[in-house]
Design a protein around this nucleic acid. Structure first.
Lengths: 197, 197
DNA sequence: CCAAAATTCAATCAACTGGTTGATTAGGTA
DNA sequence: TACCTAATCAACCAGTTGATTGAATTTTGG
């Protein structure tokens, strides 16, 4: 997907535990929201003492930062299965949307947590910084495809690449806030956009 | 805007105080998010003792319910100024979108709080119930306009009313999650949709 | 096999949380 | 005056929170 300089530090000993903690945190955020997140609950879920958790993440904030990075990394690196190599901009966009829809369908919690984090980013600088840079990269990625698609005639000549880029992102993020939208309905909405452009 | 049977009980004595508390709560949610909401802060903002706050709202949950109802009521009852009477479905839709965009521009905190509440509705039944029924009413409202617009030829014949209804809602809600989208950009996105349909 | 390093834990802390208590005030009424 | 009620408050409570500590246990490398 779009580039993202995910810090890929050397593999450490305690990294499995660290991943385990982050994964449990993600599950709990999806379940109870950011509000209801308690490190004691996380520790209990993993099956460790809360002091052990503090051994891996000095503070709750640092744990959240780990969560943000992990979520972003998962979102950009997950591919929908059975995808074929796109041969033109329209197929590129479809492949990308297919990747996202696949995740909305199969790991919806990932999107719920993303929503929680985006909300939190309104009040917390560290989270905001990471997510904003991701947003910019995502938008550029989309704009690039759309511009090429417009110039090749794959897409409607009348569309504005930047606006449609924002549109797609707002749509996908907004799906979390659409209370009774099933994955099928979300997919239909995306199909509608695909058809119109 | 779309109908919403807002319980309009008789005006009580303490209703001004109640409104004052809710208004302060909305401001604080917009500022610090649902996570950071503390009844002590609310009481302090209003300039009353926290026991007095509990006199008006038995529990924090009941206060949140009051906030949900107020936000929803404000969202559906606010009109953009200078609006003219729409004479066809396309103008109806434009008028509606104009009402929403007006609020995104002039009372953005209202949308931020709506986002927070929508997120919370994933974990709290009472909030979910209110917002879900509002969502359904909103969707029906949009679908009705779009269907009429399609049949009169105002809109593209190929669009699916339900999908486009969802699309518009997801777009507007998602605008809160689009980290660096200015009101101008959001307006451009909406204009793009208007143009395509 | 042993000492050092890495992990784990029970117990504890200060700060904070939503909520309660009992008393006080001001205004109205009979 | 005596009484009632709505509104307000300072003080307090029990439970929770993120974080810390020091000791115990396990793992690792030589």
């Amino acid at each position: 997907m779009f580039s993202q300089n995910q810090a890929q530090s050397e593999i450490q000993q305690g990294d499995n535990r660290r991943r385990e903690i982050i994964s449990a945190t993600i599950a709990l955020i999806a379940q109870k929201g950011m509000e209801g997140l308690r490190i004691r609950d996380i520790a209990e879920t993993v099956g460790i003492n809360n002091a052990t958790l503090h051994y891996y993440f000095k503070t709750k904030e640092m744990l959240i930062e780990g969560v943000v990075n992990t979520i972003v990394h998962e979102l950009v690196s997950t591919r929908s299965p059975g995808a074929t190599q796109p041969t033109n901009p329209r197929e590129e966009l479809e492949a990308h949307l297919s990747d996202i829809l696949y995740q909305i369908r199969h790991t919806p919690q990932r999107f719920v947590v993303l929503g929680e984090l985006l909300m939190r980013s309104h009040h917390e600088q560290a989270v905001h910084a990471i997510l904003k840079s991701t947003d910019k990269a995502w938008h550029s990625f989309l704009v690039d495809i759309i511009k090429r698609g417009v110039s090749t005639g794959d897409f409607n000549k009348d569309i504005d690449a930047s606006s449609v880029g924002h549109l797609i992102m707002m749509l996908l993020k907004g799906s979390t806030l659409q209370l009774d939208a099933s994955p099928d309905e979300i997919e239909a909405v995306i199909a509608q956009v695909n058809q119109l452009m």
